[in-house]
Design a protein around this nucleic acid. Structure first.
Length: 460
RNA sequence: GGCUCGGUGGCAGAGUGGUUAUGUAGGGGCCUGCAAAGCCUUGCACAGCGGUUCGAUUCCGCUCCGAGCCUCCA
């Protein structure tokens, strides 16, 4: 079985082969920390987390780097508005980002470099780019000269001249070419900055990833990832910088695979501040469990757009409950291995086809009622093994489903009522029995009469 | 205007040149005093028009529709 990944560079699904089989290296463009993470940020984190977990089933050593952008004009603006020091803001939101992602069962990257810790490296890169005639200084700015890189546009498959024709971008007067982008810009007082050969200033956004990816992983590395929208211009510019720096026009000398996840829409519309429909993980946490949110993110293929609605959250919540119920029914079954069936593994390896995996798990789960012991073991093994990679079904089934409320403060009262009801049922006083059941229902308690007696759970 | 990617059943969402995706919602039934949970069963589909083919939802072309990017953006 071979892992296949859609490579934006070729526009096709390709068999994955690492540069170094002993050490797979992945870099994902992480968040700009000036606010709470939204569900779109989460999709990127979850997609990459899944990619890494799948890679780890195939390779012994995988290093996952995902940066924190902690210097940026949006951050400066936010800090100014809140009248808060920039560092307080970025430290705070970095911490919250990591907490929110942990809630979604996203593992922390192996390395999480910060842009502001790599200013020196960036200055070195700029100096070299100027020396190589790929960049120039003008009015305190340093710009990358796009025509100096012949392969500009390979990733996003854009023809520069055609773009410019229909472009509505206002071109800064100091640009030699309209497509030239900023490597360094001046920071007039009181804006934050660093001393450089071009004066006090701060780096352009694209530069940090070129600096940090090379420093943390070395070149070329295997997979460079991020959200769809980063393809142009961010990743295109990174390619131009890093390749020019190393005097090559071969994009694969930077990263072999480019992995991009699709967008999350909300109720059919793009998330945006003006519409006011941004869904923050911070808020969703109050209403939904991490596993439900994560499963919902995985319910569509990572490259497809995902329409975030209450309905799909509910659907996935039900699916997850069913999986847990299957696991509950299998509690007494011993697991002998933790291996995933070839079929399901194949789906994961096929460009992370999570909807297909979920369908397979459902099919498997549906076989429970007619399964013999061996088959039950297989069902359980697969659910658990798949859950570990997908980041779901990690809780205790009884607790998840609301059973086993030994710590519920109303436990005695509830069980008292259940005893009263069963007493009434014995006397065939079904009117009273149903009244008691309704009363429990109002308390959020659902009861089930099984052949082993009445059991109860907290209704979610 | 340019580039890219899509249009699958009420909804969500995979996939395939000829055979049930799967979930959810709906219909019918079993179980139950009635429920709950579970089980069984059953509708409902591949945007349109051409072409290739013995056969296309699947390949090709065109049309229509939608989304993203071209400007900060996950």
């Amino acid at each position: 079985m071979v892992l296949k990944i859609h490579n934006t560079l070729s526009g096709t699904k390709e068999p994955f082969a690492p540069v170094d089989k002993q050490h797979v290296r992945v870099y994902a463009c992480g968040p700009t920390v000036y606010n709470f993470a939204h569900i779109g940020n989460a999709r990127m984190a979850v997609a990459n987390d899944l990619l890494i977990k799948v890679l780890r089933t195939q390779y012994n050593k995988v290093t996952y780097v995902s940066n924190i952008t902690d210097i940026d004009d949006k951050i400066i603006d936010a800090a100014h508005e809140l009248n808060e020091p920039i560092q307080n803001l970025t430290t705070k939101y970095t911490k919250i980002y990591n907490e929110d992602m942990a809630y979604l069962n996203v593992s922390l990257p192996d390395v999480q470099p910060r842009a502001t810790d790599h200013i020196d490296e960036m200055i070195v890169i700029i100096t070299k780019l100027i020396k190589n005639n790929n960049a120039y200084e003008k009015e305190g700015h340093v710009l990358f000269h796009v025509p100096s890189f012949s392969k500009y546009g390979v990733l996003s498959k854009r023809n520069r001249d055609e773009q410019i024709a229909g472009s509505r971008v206002e071109v800064a007067p100091f640009k030699k070419d309209p497509a030239d982008f900023i490597l360094w810009k001046p920071s007039p007082d009181p804006l934050p900055g660093w001393d450089s050969p071009w004066g006090f200033g701060r780096p352009g956004w694209h530069l940090e990833c070129s600096a940090m990816s090379e420093k943390t992983l070395g070149l070329p590395f295997d997979i460079h990832s991020g959200g769809m929208d980063l393809v142009f211009p961010h990743h295109e510019n990174e390619i131009a910088q890093t390749c020019s720096l190393n005097k090559t026009d071969e994009p694969k000398s930077f990263a072999r695979f480019w992995f991009h996840n699709g967008f999350v829409n909300v109720e059919g519309e793009k998330m945006s501040k003006s519409i006011g429909n941004i869904r923050l993980v911070h808020d969703l946490k109050k209403q939904f469990s991490g596993e439900v949110l994560r499963l919902t993110l995985l319910s569509a293929h990572y490259r497809q757009p995902l329409n975030w609605t209450k309905e799909i959250i509910d659907q996935n919540s039900k699916m997850l409950d069913r999986f847990y119920r299957t696991l509950k029914d299998l509690q007494s079954v011993e697991v002998s291995s933790d291996s995933l069936s070839d079929e399901i593994m194949e789906s994961l390896l096929d460009d992370l086809n999570t909807p297909k995996v979920l369908a397979q798990l459902n099919t498997l789960s549906n076989k429970l009622s007619s399964a013999n012991n061996d088959e039950k073991m297989i069902i359980k093994n697969n659910l658990i093994a798949a859950g570990r990679i997908l980041g779901i079904m990690l809780e205790d089934p009884d607790l998840w489903l609301g059973y086993n409320q030994s710590l519920n403060p109303q436990k005695e009262e509830i069980e008292g009522l259940i005893n009263q009801r069963n007493e009434a049922r014995r006397h065939k006083d079904f009117k009273l029995a149903d009244e008691i059941r309704d009363k429990l229902k109002l308390k959020g308690i659902e009861i089930e009469d099984t052949k082993n007696g009445t059991i109860w759970r907290k209704d979610s």
